[in-house]
């Protein structure tokens, strides 16, 4: 299942774990990323908390927790080479895996068509 937030994140859900990243649209808007700061594994987050920071040459932006949950894995490859987020934002450029506190909360997020309509 693929879901999207209004803050331009995507979630790919398997079981009760969501892999989270930023959308191709967001990556393009941010421009070339030069730094990514990831959360610590084990950190509990509420929806809307600061989860990660991305920096382009010009500006810093927050990546928010899309739902309540716990960080169970992070992608160190994007901290070593932030350009992966620009080249493959919805694949190898994933940020973290979030064990969802309440899977039912996914229903409130957008599907791909709704997200595409929002950014159109």
């Amino acid at each position: 299942m693929l879901k999207f937030t209004e803050e331009h994140e995507w979630l790919r859900v398997e079981g009760d774990v969501a892999t989270v990243g930023i959308t191709a649209h967001a990556a393009e808007q941010l421009g070339d990323l030069v730094f990514v700061e990831l959360p610590e594994v084990g950190k509990a987050l509420s929806k809307g908390d600061d989860a990660a920071v991305v920096e382009s040459v010009k500006a810093a932006s927050e990546v928010y927790a899309p739902l309540d949950g716990e960080i169970v894995e992070i992608n160190p490859a994007i901290a070593d080479d932030p350009s992966i987020v620009n080249s493959d934002p919805q694949g190898n450029g994933w940020f973290f895996k979030l064990k969802l506190a309440d899977k039912a909360a996914l229903d409130a997020l957008m599907d791909e068509d709704a997200y595409k309509a929002m950014i159109a």
Partner: peptide, 12 residues
């Protein structure tokens, strides 16, 4: 123009 299609990094 803040950047063109190449992007800030490549332009720099």
């Amino acid at each position: 123009p803040v950047q063109y299609s190449a992007g800030v990094m490549k332009e720099h």
